[in-house]
Design a binder for these strands. Structure first.
Lengths: 339, 339
DNA sequence: CTGAAAGCGCTTACAG
DNA sequence: CTGAAAGCGCTTACAG
């Protein structure tokens, strides 16, 4: 059984009894072709099931590939799945197709992925950077514009969209402090040092402004790799709870930490205990947040909007001729108080 | 500010003072090039930041594009995000890159997406089909192999991986019946008719084998579009609960329905009611299932494994020369009983 | 309105 | 071991 080769423009031309150029013109739509020939060409296209080879097409100078490469840390993280959806929404509307890959927070994998995308002639890149920097330098990218999302990489002069991490954590923590909480833990394990660090900054700043000392032993922050292990965050949360029974609130710096803490509380049979005992301040909304029986404050932000925004920054350079210096956008968070 | 054009193999050749062929040979690695020239070429590659143009490369006959197109209903559905991760895992290991797009369960969008992928010279396709069929016929695909996941499309002769929907629903329902439940609802709203139908089949079959009549008024199943609306499933669950206070159990045919039902119960203040009153049989696991205060039975299956399996079926045709007739694989489910 | 020529960036033969 | 020629599928610019 022979795999049928894909028909070429020449095959269509032969079938229709015209030159390849006439076929090209009909497909292009902009040129003037006699109705009779155009009709014959269209019939041949259908008869042969011809589809234009975009790779060959974009080989000609001045043609765009219509491809955008997206490198995120983990496709299966619901937050980045939302990001992807938002990016696709905007880019599909400009007729572009997405190539994607997960970096698993490995600099080496990000580097390979980006090189692969460049080799495949992407017009632009959307990257949630893992921390490597050199391979994202403009000259390494041969002038392909890149937009960074979630995390900044200083010194490479790339457009960047981040969440207002510092401000979000600051506002949330301040509310806790105003409510009288004085012993507040911080769970930021398994996060990027950039995001985690900024959220911790907001946490510290709020304490400072309220004149409350931050006790370092209440902070859990490491970048250990096992963030994929579902039990990882629960175990860390448990150790925090065990060592500090005097905690009245905990800031979870992302949804993985929140889920870990909720699980830890469930294990200890402490779900449903009143807000006086433990309040959870959760950076990132999570599914069923409205249902879990715990005193909860959510610092909400929209991954989909992050994706849209990053994609828009890219299309402004790609399609609208924007050519200014790199821009930084901070997307606001909102504090969801219990109903 | 001029955007620097990407360097070509000719630019490298000129820079190194050799012919393009010598550069090609060095990059290829398989041919014999004198160490001295090879070294010069490598230096020029680095100096110019050259990356081989894969589009031009794959234009030559016999070359593979290394691209696989993945069309799923919604990237942001956690189940399909897992699917994507599994597919990527297997395909990245064979050196392939993924192009992706969401169909939003629209046949027209799926059709455009697939045509776009074909035009971009993908070697194969992974599709969670929306129901259209003609555009997935082999001749429309010009011989590009396609693997369907989650749902079957009869009559197109494509490799397919599905979940054991019938059996999973059958086993779960049977356990409920054995426990004495007699008034069991079915929530299958907003699902594909294929999957939803099969899970309902299992539900009916279990009743039949147990000699219990299925009451049609306890079934909720429609394909209405608003499945993206987070309140959609809750409202439907509420109407079921309102109209049938005698329900003792409900089979939720997917995780969207489960979340809707849990929300409905929370609204009514009925979370935490004992298992005697309402048992939730949930097709698809969901995050925090272990924490939600409801009597729960989960029919679990692994989206990531679905993705791996689909990708493997594809690579068997792509890389291992498998050329037999289309195959159908059913991935088993497992019933998770409460601890 | 239509087509023959040339070339995009690469690699497969074929010469030397 | 190295390179000149030819061609992959397309489109731009030039002739007619």
């Amino acid at each position: 059984m022979v795999t049928s080769r894909r028909p070429t423009i020449t095959a269509v031309a032969t079938h229709a009894g015209v030159s390849p150029m006439t076929v090209s013109r009909v497909l292009d739509g902009r040129s003037t072709v006699s109705p009779e020939l155009a009709e014959r060409v269209r019939a041949s296209v259908v008869a042969l099931g011809y589809q234009r080879n975009e790779q060959a097409r974009s080989l000609r100078p001045g043609q765009r590939s219509g491809l955008v490469g997206v490198a995120i840390t983990n496709v299966a993280n619901p937050y980045y799945a939302q990001f992807l959806l938002g990016a696709e929404e905007v880019l599909a509307a400009t007729g572009r197709t997405l190539m994607i890959g997960s970096t698993a927070d490995s600099v080496a994998r990000e580097e390979r992925l980006v090189a692969d995308f460049i080799g495949r002639q992407v017009e632009g890149l959307l990257v949630v950077p893992t921390g490597g920097r050199t391979h994202l330098l403009p000259r390494r990218l041969n002038g392909v514009p890149v937009v960074l999302a979630s995390r900044q990489v200083p010194g490479i002069g790339a457009d960047t969209v981040v969440v207002a991490d510092v401000r979000g954590a600051y506002v949330g923590t301040t509310v806790l402090l105003e409510r009288g909480h004085r012993v507040i833990g911080f769970l930021g394990s398994g996060m990027s040092s950039f995001t985690g660090g900024r959220r911790l900054d907001g946490f510290r700043l709020a304490h400072e402004d309220a004149g409350v000392r931050v006790r370092d032993e209440l902070l859990r922050q490491d970048e250990s790799v096992l963030a994929d292990d579902p039990d990882h965050h629960r175990v860390i949360a448990e150790s925090l709870l065990d060592e500090h029974p005097d905690l009245t609130a905990v800031l979870c710096a992302n949804n993985r930490n929140t889920v870990g803490l909720v699980r830890a509380l469930a294990r200890r049979g402490e779900l449903g205990r009143s807000a006086d005992q433990l309040t959870v301040l959760a950076f990132d909304d999570f599914e069923l947040a409205d249902v879990v029986d715990v005193a909860l404050l959510v610092i909400d932000h929209d991954g989909r909007e992050l994706g849209r925004c990053a994609a828009r920054m890219l299309t402004e350079r790609l399609d609208n001729g924007f050519d200014g210096p790199a821009r930084l956008i901070e997307l606001p968070t909102s504090l969801l108080l219990p109903m």
